[in-house]
C-alpha cells in the first residue's frame, strides 16, 4: 500500500442538539434564569454538546462527509438529537496541538 499523500487536517465543530419536539429542560431553565437577570430579549436557549474533531482528509468535502458518518454512527441519537457540522478551517501541523 502506498502512503496517501496530499492529506490535510481539517478542524470541524459538531453541535449535537435536542430535536425540536424533545424537551430541553436545561435550556428552558437557563432561559428563565436569564430573564430573572433582566435579559428579557432572549427568546430561546438550547443546550447541547459541542464536539471538536480534527480529521485527516484529502479534501474539505471528504472531511465533512466523514464527520457526517461519525455523527450518524455515534455522536447523535436520531430519536432525540440533531447534529450540525461546521467546517472551521484547515489546520497546519503547528496549529493542531493548540486545538
Amino acid at each position: 500500500m502506498t502512503e496517501v499523500l496530499n492529506q490535510n487536517t481539517y478542524e470541524l465543530l459538531v453541535e449535537v442538539r435536542h430535536r425540536e419536539k424533545i424537551a430541553d429542560p436545561e435550556g428552558s431553565t437557563i432561559n428563565k434564569a436569564l430573564h430573572a437577570l433582566g435579559f428579557n430579549s432572549v427568546e430561546k436557549v438550547s443546550v447541547g454538546k459541542a464536539i471538536r474533531l480534527l480529521i485527516k482528509s484529502e479534501s474539505e468535502q471528504a472531511a465533512v462527509s466523514q464527520a457526517e458518518d461519525i455523527c450518524k454512527r455515534l455522536l447523535a441519537n436520531p430519536v432525540l438529537e440533531n447534529y450540525f457540522i461546521t467546517l472551521i478551517k484547515q489546520k497546519t501541523p503547528e496549529e493542531i496541538s493548540s486545538v
Binding site: I22, A23, P25, E26, T29, N77, V79, L80
Partner: peptide, 17 residues
C-alpha cells in the same frame, strides 16, 4: 438496548430535570 437498536425509541432526561 435502545442505543444498540434492540429496542425502539430512547430514554431522555426526566421531565423537570
Amino acid at each position: 438496548l435502545t442505543e444498540a437498536g434492540l429496542l425502539p425509541g430512547a430514554l431522555q432526561k426526566n421531565a423537570n430535570l
